[in-house]
Design a protein around this nucleic acid. Sequence first.
DNA 1: TGCGCTCCTGTACCGCCAGTACAGTTTTCA
DNA 2: TGAAAACTGTACTGGCGGTACAGGAGCGCA
Lengths: 206, 206
Amino acid sequence: MRKGEETRTRILDAAEVAVLAKGFGATSIDELIVEIGITKSGFFYHFRDKNELAKALLERYIENDEKIYDEIFGRGRELADDPLQAFLLGLKLLSELLADLPNGHPGCLVATMCTQERAFDREIRELNRQAALMWRRRFGAMFRDIMQAYRPREPLDADQLADMVSTVLEGGIVLSKALKEPKSLPDQLLVFRSFVRLLFQPAAPA
Amino acid sequence: MRKGEETRTRILDAAEVAVLAKGFGATSIDELIVEIGITKSGFFYHFRDKNELAKALLERYIENDEKIYDEIFGRGRELADDPLQAFLLGLKLLSELLADLPNGHPGCLVATMCTQERAFDREIRELNRQAALMWRRRFGAMFRDIMQAYRPREPLDADQLADMVSTVLEGGIVLSKALKEPKSLPDQLLVFRSFVRLLFQPAAPA
DNA sequence: TGCGCTCCTGTACCGCCAGTACAGTTTTCA
DNA sequence: TGAAAACTGTACTGGCGGTACAGGAGCGCA
């Protein structure tokens, strides 16, 4: 049990790196087993097929993602009582975390599975959808809290603002990779942060 | 010559649909040639290998993308003299165009190649980078024009604002696909439009 | 001590796929 | 009508996903 879990984790680790770098279709099982030093039979002992691997990969990724957001925006709430300040602080912390990744963001598995959606079954596409909905719920709740205390200068929907967080993150990752400029992602997040601050800023004093 | 171009186009058309749906690695040449009714030899007459296909695909995609932006933001400038109004109008027109796609946005090839970057050679990654830089130049020029006439309420960089257009488009496509909500993409673009309007809105009257 | 379970290895095989090689054939257009 | 363009046909290679099993090493427990 102990040993089996460890091997499984090593497969997932190697697969995640490869899938984020080359895409799922271009990631071969043969290459993974060579890398981690097991046989093909060993691989299929842990995963029925490649689709099972994709599912396990995505589940683990989403779980970890949620944990990171919990920590970062939890810290934001610890350091600031005001919901707007807490959120802005969270965005700042997230931007710093992304800026500190030495080789830039490795990529988002949710995005990877979206850009190759027909390569996966219904179950995986549903997992992907649930992840995006969780992001919406998380940030939507924050924006609703903020709106209790601040009146937005434009009548924007809390869920659409929440989606904007995911949009900027996913889009920033793509742009960063296309440009080969790791700094673009944290920068874009800070631009979005400025927008949020502007949106809830009280009208200029008379 | 005429005929050859037509076949080549048919290959590219079929390949683009398949690559956007399943990713490049999961798109097989065998499947493409069956779909368009040629032989494998016929395919390799037009493209030396799969990488040549990818390059041609990306080149055509970027060219077409530029043409669409030229048209839409050109129309914006025709209908409004003011650079801010012209840009806001362009975003509106773009949002409407995206909202009218019956099955949602098919996906962006630049994003596809980013999320599978290691599957492609240096030349293709450079093409991708140039595309992102072209977007930056295009929208950066528009923001600089706007800044000649309007003072932003936050000191934001024109190039970073320009990148935000690409970010929102790429991120919106990913989110739309993940959520299976085609409307998310045009909606996100309109949220961004509100932000831009807010940014250049004169300070609230005293 | 040995039984059974987990966690693999080894071997052999199938059909799909990218790519090569090249000879031959049809189509197109000047 | 003839040369070039645009293919087809055939045969092959090696990698890959996946299947099918048979067997074995190490470990916990009665």
